[in-house]
């Protein structure tokens, strides 16, 4: 039995949730302009980061849990002090910010903006080393205009050697963070990529796509290692780092069709798949709408999901979960 903790800090659908490195804090962003910070063990809200005036699409925290970066549809990305909610820096762009991420060494921030109204998509890298309010530069150290399909999700590879970008046409691309050039691309999905999460050592990653499948790819070669095919469009996929060799994927019917179906038919469940054997092992239900984002605690003892219904549900696994052995 799992007793989920419901976090009701948002009034609109969730867009992303993320744990910090130790997993004691959980950050959630939604279309209602607010960034929330929660203690993951009991669901207590630590505070809110206020300042955005548009839907917040993306959030990331650095490994020492001192800095938080968020990207919004109000054409800004903001850098926050995690401990007190103060905004340290607000970067202005021409279009909405789609994706933000700290590099592995916390020195750089990757920011991806959308192409819109004649402005091309940009992929910018800012230096945030030793950041205080005065020292953060407004100018990026790299500003690329990647050609080709729109980038929907992006992440740093190991040792900042690559940027892995998932694109609207279902392809995945490796980008050189120094030159902005494409190193290689691989069209692995039929439809747009909705999520891309790195493994703990960043040597492989999992993608989720609207084409109802999730895949594990090797970072260096972009080779597909595993495929998990479900019966519903997927919005998020995460890799369980410890205890069990599982991946968790979630999605559901498109938000616009939801009112026509019951929650069971809508398939709003987090599905657990065996990472290696590509077999589904279990499901966790509870959301009233599609699941937009999933994050797993770094120690693998709990996971959280955020849905179109505006709730974040934090699940701490029961003892049976850890003693389970997959029988072939």
């Amino acid at each position: 039995m799992i007793r989920p903790i419901l976090l009701q800090g948002h009034e609109r659908s969730l867009t992303q949730i993320k744990y910090n490195r130790e997993g004691d804090l959980l950050f959630s962003v939604s279309k209602d302009h607010v960034v929330n910070a929660w203690f993951s063990h009991n669901g207590e809200r630590l505070g809110t980061y206020e300042g955005h005036v548009g839907a917040v699409w993306t959030v990331d925290v650095n490994s020492s849990s001192t800095l938080l970066v968020s990207g919004s549809a109000d054409n800004t990305a903001k850098l926050w002090d995690v401990s007190n909610g103060k905004c340290l820096k607000s970067w202005e762009f021409n279009t909405a910010v789609r994706c933000v991420q700290f590099s592995e060494d916390d020195k750089l921030v990757l920011i991806v903006t959308e192409p819109r109204m004649g402005y091309p998509a940009t992929l910018q890298i800012f230096n945030v080393e030793n950041s205080t309010t005065e020292t953060v530069s407004s100018e990026p150290i790299y500003d690329f205009h990647p050609e080709g399909p729109k980038i929907t999700v992006a992440a740093w590879g190991a040792l900042n050697r690559y940027i892995v970008a998932g694109r609207e046409n279902g392809s995945v691309a490796l980008i050189d963070p120094k030159s902005g050039e494409y190193i290689s691309t691989n069209k692995v999905h039929e439809l747009t990529l909705t999520d891309l999460q790195m493994s703990a050592d960043r040597t492989y990653f999992i993608t989720a796509s609207k084409d109802k499948s999730a895949k594990i790819l090797e970072t260096e070669s972009l080779e597909v290692l595993k495929t998990y095919t479900t019966d519903t469009p997927l919005n998020s996929a995460a890799i369980m780092p410890k205890h069990q060799e599982f991946v968790v994927v979630g999605g559901g019917q498109e938000a616009m069709d939801v009112t026509t179906t019951s929650s069971r038919q809508g398939k709003f469940e987090c599905r657990f798949w065996h990472k290696v054997l590509e077999e589904e092992v279990g499901r966790v239900r509870g959301h009233f709408g599609p699941i937009n984002t999933i994050a797993i605690h770094p120690d693998g003892r709990s996971f959280a999901s955020g849905g179109e219904d505006g709730y974040v549900r934090v699940h701490h696994f029961d003892d049976d979960f850890f003693t389970f052995k997959f029988q072939i």
Binding site: M1, I2, R3, P4, I5, L6, L7, Q8, G9, V34, W38, N42, G43, E44, R45, L46, G47, T48, Y49, E50, S83, N84, G85, F272, E279, V281, G282, R283, V284, R285, G286, R313, H315, F317, D318, D320, F321, F324, F326, Q327, I328
Partner: peptide, 28 residues
């Protein structure tokens, strides 16, 4: 801080609730 400024420690029932029990039945 933020909207929670000045609130006492511990989960606030306005934002944090416990849901119904859910079964995660793992099968091979």
């Amino acid at each position: 801080f933020g909207k929670e400024r000045g609130n006492k420690p511990g989960p606030d029932p306005a934002t944090t609730n416990v849901g119904d029990n859910i079964k995660l039945k793992l099968s091979s």
